[in-house]
């Protein structure tokens, strides 16, 4: 059973439809203890980081326990940002702090992060970039990954966001929009995508399928 966390961050219809198209059974847990029987967790999200404040302490503990048991989790959009320390969009709401670094607005500096090998250190800042970053952009695959398995360099996916996560060692896919940001992350059984796989046609379905394949 896949638990799709409903914490009021937009509608879950699209994610649910894409997963059921791929043959997965999805439920929405009512209370944190429901997560003990979950084979996988999906933290969706769209809109403002502040909504993650609705994921209370009991939910956090249940999710942390799930991750500690090495069971798969996928964060989508704000759900991925939530895996980091937090976001400047809502400084009073800490993230899960599984991954280091803060998510920042595109017009802020994104370059305060630990450098990774081969990364371009001089970020090309430009005021000509419209925010939110809406549309299809390319994924640059940075290392071998179960989440992005089967994708090819430059495959395009659908983004819609104004804040972005830093490129850290957990990053498996980088996208450039004025700055480079983490488009996909992976740490153990935890995956995260800034874009919307449920809205990214065949490429997105492949990523969701890769996640489902991770479930024992």
């Amino acid at each position: 059973m896949i638990a799709l966390i409903d914490y009021g961050a937009g509608n879950l219809t699209s994610v649910r439809k894409a997963l059921s198209y791929l043959g997965a059974t999805v439920t929405t847990p009512r209370k944190p203890s429901d997560l003990t029987s979950a084979s996988a967790i999906i933290v969706p999200g769209v809109g403002n980081f502040e909504v993650t404040g609705a994921i209370g302490p009991d939910w956090r503990t249940a999710i942390q326990r799930h991750i500690a048991c090495e069971r798969p989790l996928l964060g989508i959009c704000v759900g991925m940002q939530w895996l980091f320390d937090g976001s400047t969009e809502a400084p009073s709401h800490p993230g899960l702090q599984l991954l280091p670094g803060l998510c920042r607005h595109f017009t802020d500096n994104l370059d305060e992060h630990e450098p990774v090998a081969g990364e371009i250190t001089t970020l090309n800042q430009s005021s000509h970039f419209k925010v939110p970053h809406v549309g299809w952009n390319s994924l640059h695959l940075t290392r071998r990954s179960w989440l992005l398995d089967g994708l090819t360099e430059g495959d395009q996916v659908y983004f819609t966001h104004s804040y972005a996560a830093p490129v850290t060692s957990s990053c498996v896919g980088v996208t450039r929009y004025g700055v480079e940001f983490a488009a996909a992350i992976e740490q153990g059984q935890v995956g995260g995508v800034q874009f919307h796989p449920e809205k990214s046609s065949d490429v997105g379905l492949r990523i969701l399928s890769n996640f489902l394949h991770r479930i024992p």
Binding site: L22, G23, A24, W136, G150, T152, D155, Q156, S201, D202, V203, L205, R206, S209, N210, L212, H213
Partner: peptide
């Protein structure tokens, strides 16, 4: 522009 590449969608069952 995004150019469509033909790509078979692999279902969960086929991936097993």
């Amino acid at each position: 522009i995004r150019l469509q590449k033909p790509r078979p969608i692999t279902s969960q069952l086929e991936l097993s």
